[in-house]
């Protein structure tokens, strides 16, 4: 029952997120609002129940499996995108390499600045 109770809690937060997203007409999906609401709720409570851990751990472990039905569709697009595959591949691969490089450098620089200022205190 523990895992089921946790799953129900996750669904309830998803419902809250979905309702907020709809009512306020936000472009953010209900699941992300649910995630933020859950984190906020846990912080106010100060601890996380075993139920919630039991339900969330397997779901997080299988996160990539859950996108597989959509992702695998790319293997069946072939003819529709004839002539554009090279542009798609280059922009995805080079674009991602560049953006990873940028994020790493920015985040590393600012994190170091914080660590250094802390060590000066």
């Amino acid at each position: 029952m523990s895992m089921l109770r946790g799953f129900l809690l996750l669904i309830l937060f998803l419902l809250v997120g979905e309702s907020l997203s709809f009512m306020l007409d936000w472009p953010i999906s209900g699941s992300v609002i649910g995630m933020i609401t859950l984190t906020t709720w846990l912080m106010l409570r100060g601890h996380v129940s075993q139920d919630l851990v039991a339900a969330s751990q397997p779901l997080i472990a299988f996160l990539t499996m859950l996108i597989m039905p959509g992702v695998v569709g790319v293997f069946f697009l072939g003819a529709q995108l004839a002539g554009q595959w090279l542009a798609i591949a280059i922009s995805l691969i080079v674009g991602t390499l560049l953006s990873v490089l940028t994020t790493l450098l920015l985040m590393n620089r600012f994190t170091r600045a914080v660590s250094e200022s802390e060590s000066h205190d």
Binding site: L14, S31, M35, L59, I60
Partner: peptide, 16 residues
């Protein structure tokens, strides 16, 4: 893929 919803909410746990 419907389970992506609760799975995304579940990320709130490690976040906390």
């Amino acid at each position: 893929m419907l389970l992506l919803g609760p799975a995304t909410v579940a990320l709130g746990v490690p976040l906390y």
